[in-house]
Computed example of a mutant assay.
Amino acid sequence: MSVLRPHPGTRGAIRAILWLQVGLAVVLLGSELIRVLPQIVWPSAAPELTAPLAPGDQTRRYRPAELPARDAPPGSRPVPVTTDMPSRLLFEPATWEGRETLTLTGTIAPGDAERLSDYLDGRTAPELVFLNSPGGSVGDALSIGRSLREMEAETRMSQADICLSACPYMLAAGVRRQVAEGAMVGVHQHFFGENIALPAFLAVEDIQRGQGEVMAYLAEMGIDPLLMQPALVTPPDEIYLLTAEELSRYGLVTPADGAEPDT
């Protein structure tokens, strides 16, 4: 019985493809190590997230997997705060102050904007949206924010809620925005989902494009784009917590009469 043997040229092509795949794997692993190695070797020395704030002392360690449990007093929000933060947004309808209300709780996972759109299809649009999220996908946060603005929903946070990383972009979407004393709102640098296998100049271009989209979004929502300043100087393993004065100055909260602050 004759045995078919691959042509020498075919064997060479197969070997070349295999080595190319190995090379790509090394590049991907090396690029990821370069990105996270500084955080491993030189972890943030900033205080814990719950350490008291003072103006100028607002940078805190940010570890989404180690968020402290925060209990909301009864009657402070439509749905009680759970101790475990969902790994993607949890949608929970409620009635608050006699109005249709929705709570968005958990990490903003890729695809959550589409999930929310599907969830709201055929339902009465909420007038109030309570937020409690450590952040996540920037693109989904912007898309969700635009949906909330289109619905003319208000965004709120109770004193037990957090809104970190990409979450403030959802907070920004409310036609009126309220943040209770004790709530945490914080910003930092984002990766914008760039492909780590891209050459450095293309990766930088991708990051700059993402930052430009965020700044345009903030302006669209009536938020001062200078909010990006503390975000851009705070590394991903830290979070810059905004003071009540900054929340008002940047426009992330609106006055009690609903008038928009000057930005």
Rank of each mutant, 00 (worst) to 15 (best):
E154R: 11
G98I: 11
E97G: 15
E194H: 01
D140W: 00
A244I: 02
L24H: 04
G174E: 03
H7I: 06
G251T: 08
P38A: 07
R123H: 12
E181H: 00
T105P: 01
G98S: 14
E181G: 00
G56V: 12
L4H: 07
F192R: 13
G98K: 11
Q208I: 14
L241K: 01
R61G: 14
R5F: 11
E48W: 01
H7W: 03
A160D: 09
G106E: 07
A109Y: 03
S147G: 14
A113D: 14
P68D: 07
A172I: 04
P93T: 08
I223L: 12
R99D: 11
C163N: 05
A46T: 11
G111K: 05
D224T: 04
P8F: 05
F201V: 13
E152L: 15
E246L: 08
S137Y: 00
T124I: 09
T50G: 04
P235N: 08
I40T: 07
S117A: 12
V175T: 11
A200K: 08
T234D: 05
R11I: 07
L128M: 09
T107N: 08
H7Y: 04
A153N: 11
G30Y: 04
E48K: 06
A200S: 13
V204W: 06
D121A: 13
E260A: 14
G212E: 13
P64T: 13
E213D: 14
T95W: 00
P236H: 03
P235W: 02
E238Q: 14
D140R: 12
R123S: 10
D71C: 03
A203I: 03
Q208L: 14
A125P: 10
S137A: 15
G30H: 02
R249Q: 15
S44N: 08
R99T: 10
V27C: 13
G210E: 05
V79E: 12
L90C: 03
I196R: 13
L37D: 09
A125R: 12
N195L: 12
A153T: 00
A54R: 14
P55Y: 06
D237G: 05
T254A: 02
A153Q: 07
L128C: 06
A16P: 02
F191Y: 04
Q211H: 10
W96A: 13
G12R: 11
E150D: 14
Q21D: 05
V36K: 10
A113S: 15
L131G: 06
A173C: 11
F91S: 02
R146D: 14
H188C: 06
I223A: 08
G75L: 07
Q39F: 13
V253A: 09
G56S: 13
V36Y: 11
A203Q: 15
L171C: 03
H188V: 05
E260G: 01
M221N: 01
P52D: 10
A160P: 04
A54C: 15
M215N: 07
P225S: 10
L102A: 10
F191T: 07
G136I: 04
D161C: 07
L37M: 12
P52S: 08
I223Y: 04
P261H: 05
R209I: 07
A180M: 01
